[in-house]
Computed example of a mutant assay.
Amino acid sequence: MALHMIKLCVGCDTVEELLAWHAEERPGRPWVMHTRQTPKRADELVTGGSLYRVFKGVILCRQKILAVDTVGEGAGARCEVTLDAECVRVAPTPRRAFQGWRYLDGKDAPPDLESEIGGEIPPELARQLREAGAW
């Protein structure tokens, strides 16, 4: 089972806002997420892992991890996680706040919306159905 990464999305309240920000601020550039610490299990993340994003306490989407690289040396070293441009919506799943990023086991990852229900559903409706226990 694949190993994933989960990270809070700060500054955007919805997936649409995140996509619009990237299109406006970084057009034509690869999608790169920056973080301080390089994951020790980077090899596992690159072989089928995704970055799951948390918006306002709910996991809403994921992007496939293509590469994990350390940039710089010593105290100035940082990590760059290169992501696939496709943003896949997942079943809205509540997640408490945390700092930085965390590993997410494949068995704990929310399913893609398309694979779970066979089509598009508004994210707010999906969240309400999950909270009500109807989905």
Score class of each variant (00 low, 15 high):
Lys40Arg: 11
Val71Trp: 05
Pro110Met: 05
Leu60Cys: 13
Phe55Lys: 05
Leu83Gly: 03
Thr35Ile: 13
Ala132Gly: 15
Thr82Leu: 09
Gly57Phe: 07
Tyr103Trp: 05
Phe98Gly: 07
Lys56Met: 03
Gly119Thr: 04
Asp69His: 14
Leu104Val: 03
Pro27Trp: 07
Pro30Met: 12
Gln99Lys: 12
Asp69Cys: 14
Val15Ala: 01
Pro122Val: 13
Phe55Trp: 12
Leu60Ile: 03
Thr47Ala: 12
Tyr103Ala: 04
Gly49Cys: 08
Arg127Gln: 15
His4Lys: 08
Gly48Thr: 09
Tyr52Val: 04
Asp108Ser: 10
Glu124Lys: 11
Arg95Ser: 12
Val81His: 04
Glu25Arg: 10
Gly48Asp: 02
Val58Thr: 08
Trp135Cys: 10
Pro94Ile: 10
Lys107Thr: 15
Glu80Asn: 14
Lys40Cys: 08
Gly49Lys: 08
Asp108His: 13
Pro122Met: 03
Ile59Asn: 01
Trp101Tyr: 15
Phe98Trp: 14
Gln99Trp: 12
Arg36Cys: 11
Met1Gly: 15
Arg36Lys: 13
Arg95Thr: 05
Leu19His: 00
Pro39Phe: 00
Arg53Gly: 01
Leu19Phe: 05
Gln99Arg: 15
Glu120Gln: 09
Ala2Gln: 08
Phe98Val: 04
Val58Tyr: 00
Gly28Gln: 11
Arg95Phe: 09
Thr14Gln: 08
Leu104Tyr: 05
Cys9Arg: 01
Gly11Trp: 01
Pro123Arg: 02
Thr93Lys: 15
Ala134Gly: 11
Cys87Thr: 12
Pro111Val: 01
Glu80Arg: 15
Gly118Leu: 07
Ala23Lys: 10
Val88Met: 10
Arg95Ile: 05
Ala85Leu: 15
Gly72Ala: 06
Val58Leu: 06
Thr70Val: 10
Thr93Pro: 00
Arg53Glu: 01
Val58Phe: 04
Ala91Asp: 11
Ala85Tyr: 09
Asp105Phe: 11
Ala67Leu: 05
Val58Ile: 10
Gly76Thr: 03
Ala2Ser: 14
Arg78His: 14
Pro110Cys: 06
Thr47Cys: 07
Ala77Pro: 05
Val68Leu: 01
Cys61Pro: 02
Thr38Met: 08
Val58Gly: 04
Lys56Trp: 00
Ala75Arg: 12
Arg78Asn: 11
Gly49Trp: 07
Arg127Thr: 14
Ala132Ser: 07
Glu25Trp: 00
Trp21Gln: 08
Ser50Ala: 14
Cys87Gly: 02
Glu131Lys: 14
Cys12Asp: 01
Val54Pro: 05
Trp21Arg: 14
Ala23Glu: 13
Lys107Gly: 15
Ile59Tyr: 03
Trp101Ile: 08
Phe55Asn: 04
Gln37Cys: 10
Cys9Gly: 01
Glu16Gln: 04
Gly76Trp: 12
Pro39Met: 04
